[in-house]
Amino acid sequence: MTDTAAGTVHDRRGGLLRRISDTLFRRPHLLLTLLIAPPLLWLGIVYLGSLLALLAQSFFSIDEFSGMVKREFTLSTYAELLNLANVDVILRSLVMAVAVTLAAALIAFPIAYYAARYARGRWKAFFYLAVMLPLWSSYLVRVYAWKLILAKEGIITWLADKLYLTWALDAILAIPVIGGPSLSISYIGTFLVFLYVWLPYMILPTQAALERVPANLLEASADLGAVPRQTFWTVIFPLALPGLIAGSIFTFSLTLGDYIIPQIVGTSTYFLGQAVYTLQGTAGNIPLAAAFTVVPIVIMGIYLSIAKRMGAFDAL
């Protein structure tokens, strides 16, 4: 046995950085606090604070003569929200958001399923690229591109003509309400562009959820006698549901709030986002604009509580 001189067993080197490391080692909560304080401040003050300030505006009203905001508590702005023209805007946006979300889920699921279950290596990279690539180019450019595609003189009309399908296109455009003189000035057009623009936001969370479903659960299900259809509805779908819900939160709220797409492609009727945009801008009616922004927040709240009650998050 060799005797060890005192103080030579441990690393006793000094220095400021080492001193800091030692302090953080002894107080793990200090490190955590330092790390999350800035984002928490950002969320709390800059983000939630300004949102609350905006919402507070909805309890003010506008003076009809001067056009100035009266800083007194009132519910009259909310009463105004319920007049026919405004309810019309809310319903139109809601129906559009639901339609876009359902269609996106239907299209996204098979793509996400393929990517999660079967795509490997090069094909997986191709998948990510194909889904993400559109997000790298300007949103405005893509929306204008769609306007050209859908226009009366656009390639869809041209293609229908070449395939002798003009009658089918005309039949679709002749559908009341959602049809119109051309795809680019109809609700169908608005719907298609919304669907295209938000689809990646549905595919990616769905794919992530499906990726986490272990393959042996599918084998266990088949082993216990479930035909593929039963395995889908009792195992795959419930486990993928949190991903679909996450995706639908994106597609739903983005559709509810967007004010550019319906302005470029579609009829000249208003959606929620446009109403807010116009009210806070040219109309200068900040209280009503604020009241309008409460609508999607309430709708999302209701949607999430229904999803939770239906057990959508049980698999999390």
């Binding site: 272990p214 042996n216 266990a220």
Partner: peptide, 20 residues
């Protein structure tokens, strides 16, 4: 014959219980 037509059952190595 697919697994769901066989009167045979498996106890999996990591059990493969349905988490939901």
């Amino acid at each position: 014959l697919p697994p769901y037509r066989r009167n045979v059952n498996t106890v999996f190595q990591d059990y493969a219980l349905f988490p939901h």
